[in-house]
């Protein structure tokens, strides 16, 4: 018994006293819709600069609350530009670093085995009687959810489908509701709909004019330990290479960013 016990103590010690992050590692709080895009961006960034990054994915609203309460992030990538603006206003962000890196796109997504001809019907597919539940992000705090509701209103079917809407805590959970088959359709971020696990499903891109832009923005936080690295990351994010990656993951790059 003595040997495993020693191992256990050693293991616990290793876990407790894990070496703290290496120098020049930046910590990024990123909106859930970036999950796949940022993984690739990170690889390129690390290769290019030799610096490391450590990403936490989650709901932008959650991150805002955490950052306001002193969470140790260096860069905040928000699915809603309002949140970094709030931080800027509160003096928690480095002034002048706010950068709108992308515009979110939304799609109607259905599993591959659906009988509905989504490409043909477009948004009218949501009225199909076989659709009992439509998953969207929670419009109260998820930007993609707000955009989805706006789109439904703009084509005039919101009241018709309202009873069928189920809310994911964030857009990734809404995607999970459809992917698991519990909802028959979802209005999701394009970035998620073209990600490897969901690529096979059917999708119809909702025209950008049907909803207010989903402006996504990055900001460097006042509390950032390594501001050089944070700036280096932001510079990389503005590069043509990063823009191409973002576009390939279903984000459109705003005109403001293209002029830079």
């Amino acid at each position: 018994m003595r040997f495993p016990l020693r191992c256990l103590i050693l293991l616990s010690a290793l876990l407790v006293f894990r070496p703290t992050c290496a120098a020049q590692e930046i910590r990024v709080a990123a909106a859930a819709d970036l999950k796949f895009a940022l993984d690739e961006l990170g690889t390129h960034y690390e290769k290019q600069t030799g610096r490391k990054m450590d990403v936490s994915y989650g709901s932008s609203g959650n991150f805002l609350a955490q950052i306001q309460n002193g969470a140790p992030f260096d860069v905040f990538l928000s699915a809603d530009i309002e949140y970094p603006r709030k931080l800027e206003a509160a003096g928690l962000a480095e002034p002048g670093t706010l950068y709108e890196y992308a515009l979110g796109r939304i799609v109607i997504w259905m599993p591959a085995d659906t009988r509905i001809d989504l490409a043909q019907l477009g948004w009218k597919a949501l009225l199909d009687p076989s659709i009992q539940k439509i998953a969207i992000g929670n419009p109260e705090h998820a930007p993609y959810g707000r955009a989805a509701v706006a789109a439904l209103r703009s084509v005039g079917i919101y009241e018709q489908v309202r009873a069928k809407l189920v809310y994911g805590e964030n857009i990734a959970q809404a995607a999970q509701f459809v992917a698991s088959g519990n909802a028959q359709a979802g209005i999701l971020a394009l970035s998620l709909a073209i990600s490897p696990p969901m690529r096979e499903g059917k999708r119809w891109e909702i025209p950008a004019k049907m909803h207010p832009p989903i402006e996504q923005a990055a900001v460097i936080l006042k509390s950032a330990k390594d501001k050089d690295s944070a700036r280096a990351f932001l510079t990389f994010l503005k590069s043509g290479e990063a823009r191409k990656i973002l576009e390939s993951y279903g984000f459109s790059v705003p005109a403001s960013a293209q002029t830079q």
Binding site: G61, N138, H141, E169
Partner: peptide
């Protein structure tokens, strides 16, 4: 409660 905290 969670929703409210999320929507600030």
């Amino acid at each position: 409660i969670y929703d409210r905290a999320q929507s600030l």
